[in-house]
Design a protein around this nucleic acid. Structure first.
Lengths: 223, 223
DNA sequence: CCTCCCTGTACCAATATTGAACCATTCGGC
DNA sequence: GCCGAATGGTTCAATATTGGTACAGGGAGG
């Protein structure tokens, strides 16, 4: 069985841990034993454990052994779970931090094609009549600006925010705060951002985006 | 026996992928095995895969294998998976965006107890002798500043970055760029940040943190 | 004959696994 | 308190697996 064995073993180990097979004892069998049991070299078992250790499933200690981590707060999954409880106020604060910066990056780094895509989303949003349709293109407009920023990580953070904002409590809030007047204002403000991007003005884009987000905040949080 | 065997095999492969036969594992059988199974030469299987690769159905990696490309690009899990490929340069750019802001928030919002915790982490880092120990307290120092910011979402974003930076390629890079001199410089710079926090100076904290991150960037990316 | 596709083969480059040795730490028994 | 066994940490060279590339035929259809 000489194919990507380490990954398979990592999966097997994870299963046996979550199924509680060793969880009661806390301590796992030594690497050498597991290597023998799986019929692979110890290095391979170690590589499997490396990945379990990275995501916090397991803790290793020289001379003592390998242990299943107690309910762990530092795993990716736990972090995401906590993010789902993000308050609208916190979210808006971070948007006002990230989006103006993304707009500034975009003004500098975007290709002509990128900007075309942004304009397309803007025009679609302006043309959209109803709330879900507008909502969709509004989000797309913002996301395409992040795509222009040429920072993949920034883009993924925005993706995360977008997913969070699509969950239940947010959706209600957006629906409540929506109105035809506001839609028109958003379109104008988007237009200002787009204009700054097209004229390659980072500072103008930053300011236009910030102004837009302040409007959004006022509408959603009523400040 | 119709012509264009490669095309037929491409269709067959695509069917088996979309039917989910291998999609659960992610990894497809090696080309040599598939060639044997279909009773054709490996070159033919390769040409079939070429077309699947062109349209993004499949990803190939020398020495590892052929994998079905991830669908569901918009799920949380997929976003996280993409984040794991974040480049050090992109990550540093975002740190320079978020951490100075977090420091400024912290100077405004932290309680006395919060700042005590930051000082504790700072002193532990300065006292730590070896690389993993210092590394641990260094990360803790930064994280406690985010905790002071009173923005839960910001704190969780930093948590995410911290987890990503603990994964393999990053850890190697940090180990390589570590030196006693640099450790001392980091301690001094942390001290400056802490001083600004203690004197409740948001702008000073922002600037001190930015200066520190520029040093880190220089050391890690060699700029 | 020429062209195109498939076959078969050989080798290259990247990655994974193996097997072994040695180190560092912990723990239990003397 | 010391020693030895147990255990994770580290490193290295050798081997195996796998996709990437090139090339020399062979057979079918024009």
């Amino acid at each position: 069985m000489p194919r990507m064995v380490a990954d398979d073993i990592a999966v097997a180990l994870r299963d046996r841990i979550t199924s509680g097979e060793w969880s009661s004892l806390g301590r796992l069998p030594p690497e050498r034993d597991l290597a023998a049991e799986f019929g692979v070299a110890r290095n391979t078992v170690r590589r499997a454990f490396d990945s379990l250790q990275r995501d916090g499933t397991v803790i290793r200690q020289v001379g003592r052994g390998t242990f299943v981590a107690r309910e762990n707060a530092n795993t990716m999954a736990a972090t995401i779970a906590r993010m789902e409880g993000t308050s609208p106020a916190d979210m808006m604060e971070i948007r006002q931090l990230l989006e103006p910066a993304a707009a500034a990056f975009a003004a500098t780094n975007a290709s002509a094609g990128d900007l075309d895509a942004v304009r397309e989303a803007h025009e679609a949003a302006c043309a959209a009549g109803e709330m879900p349709d507008f909502e969709q293109w509004d989000a797309e407009f913002h996301h395409r600006i992040f795509s222009c920023s040429r920072n993949e990580f920034l883009k993924e953070i925005h993706n995360l925010m977008r997913i969070l904002r699509n969950q239940a409590p947010w959706f209600d809030m957006k629906k409540r705060s929506f109105s035809e007047t506001r839609r028109r204002i958003y379109c104008e403000e988007h237009g200002a951002v787009l204009a700054a991007l097209l004229s390659r003005d980072p500072d103008g884009a930053r300011k236009a985006m910030l102004a837009h987000l302040r409007t959004v905040e006022r509408n959603m949080l009523g400040r």
